[in-house]
Nucleic acid binder design. Structure first.
Length: 154
DNA sequence: GCCAACGTTGGC
DNA sequence: GCCAACGTTGGC
């Protein structure tokens, strides 16, 4: 089982939005970056765990945990001309973009903030991709050690 | 294949 | 709103 970090802008979709869904399950759609796409399509497996990270908001940080309930499959929003995520270059017979389905495991009792994570940028979390300068990937791998360390910060 | 221009991300 | 960093596009 592998670990990941998924970014979402809470204005668009927050962990509370996920918690409010009847089955607390959603398709992680709208990813339009090839590196992130490759991970959704090829690397993330059913049963993997991921941090739900809030970005572009007053308090960026890790908000909770989700589990992958369905591995990569084509992103239907790319096929819908009326959808914000529509991409005419993604075709049903040759999909360009992918999603995974995730289910809420739990919302943390508090946000583990980016500021706190940074305190360990020189030690336990020195390789955490989200702390790298200029990092913009919305899907990144997290090692087991990083995962356990961040969990213990709650 | 190079690279300038442009668009997007995301913290502040 | 600003702007650094990065990805993508498109002319050559």
């Amino acid at each position: 089982m592998n670990h990941w970090l998924l970014k979402s802008e809470p204005d668009t979709f927050s962990i509370d939005d996920l918690a409010a869904l009847p089955k607390k399950t959603t398709s992680w759609d709208g990813v339009r970056n090839y590196q992130a796409r490759n991970m959704l399509r090829d690397s993330i497996k059913k049963g993997d765990s991921a941090f739900f990270y809030h970005s572009s908001c007053p308090v960026p940080g890790v908000a909770g945990i989700v589990s992958v309930v369905k591995a990569g499959y084509p992103d239907a929003t790319a096929f819908d001309p009326k959808h914000d995520y529509f991409d005419a270059d993604s075709r049903i017979d040759a999909p360009r973009w992918y999603v995974v389905d995730v289910k809420l495991v739990r919302k943390f009792t508090r946000i583990i903030t980016l500021d706190e994570l940074r305190e360990y940028a020189g030690s336990a979390l020195k390789d955490l991709l989200i702390l790298r300068r200029g990092n913009r990937l919305s899907v990144t791998p997290v090692t087991k050690k990083e995962w356990d360390f961040i969990l213990a910060m709650e």
